[in-house]
Computed example of a mutant assay.
Amino acid sequence: MKTKKLTLTAIFIALNVVLSSIIVIPLGPIKAAPIQHLINVLCAVFVGPWFGLAQAFISSILRMIFGTGSFFAFPGSMIGVLLASGFYYYRKHLFMAAVGEVIGTGIIGSIMCVPLAWILGLSDLAIKPLMTAFIVSSMIGAIISYIILMVLKRKGILKRYI
């Protein structure tokens, strides 16, 4: 079971890093990537909170190294995947994983970025545009992942993995 989760986590990291370079919502120093949120919801369902957290952390580091992410990826993605996992495991409903991602990244993660911006010397970073970018990005990713998960569920593929 652990080998399956490790393998899926590695695949999710690879997909995240590659696909996040294609679709990015830039807002000043922030590079919001809907793919990160899509992957977070998939991780919440397939591998759970701890492997999902590892995926978010490693993906954020790699995206920063490759220039497709920023320091702001850490609080958003990590809180998002934890809340998505928590909501999913509490209700066992795919939609709740998507809702957890939007609340975790879009609202809580964007608020957590404000102190990070101050630390980085970006004191003029406005919370409303930041939160808007995070909410829009997380909603796009969450909706796409929910559609993917529903297709997998209808085809009977999902129950083999969860």
Rank of each mutant, 00 (worst) to 15 (best):
G52W: 03
L53V: 02
A54V: 14
Q55R: 03
Q55I: 03
A56C: 02
A56V: 03
F57A: 15
F57Q: 12
S60C: 09
S60R: 07
L62P: 03
I65K: 07
F66S: 14
G67M: 07
G67V: 04
G69Y: 10
G69M: 08
F71A: 13
F72W: 12
F72I: 11
F74A: 09
I79H: 11
V81C: 14
L83R: 09
G86W: 07
G86I: 00
Y88N: 07
Y88Q: 06
K92V: 05
K92C: 08
K92D: 10
H93P: 00
F95Y: 01
F95V: 02
M96S: 15
M96F: 15
M96G: 08
M96Q: 15
A97L: 06
A97F: 02
G100M: 06
E101K: 04
V102S: 09
T105A: 13
T105N: 06
I107A: 12
G109R: 00
G109C: 00
G109A: 00
S110A: 09
I111G: 08
I111A: 14
C113W: 05
P115H: 04
A117M: 06
A117I: 03
I119S: 12
L120I: 10
G121R: 05
S123V: 12
S123R: 14
D124S: 13
L130P: 01
L130K: 01
V136P: 06
S137T: 06
S138I: 05
I143A: 12
Y146H: 11
Y146W: 14
Y146N: 12
I147C: 03
I148M: 13
L149P: 00
M150K: 15
M150P: 05
V151A: 13
R154W: 03
G156K: 11
G156E: 05
G156V: 07
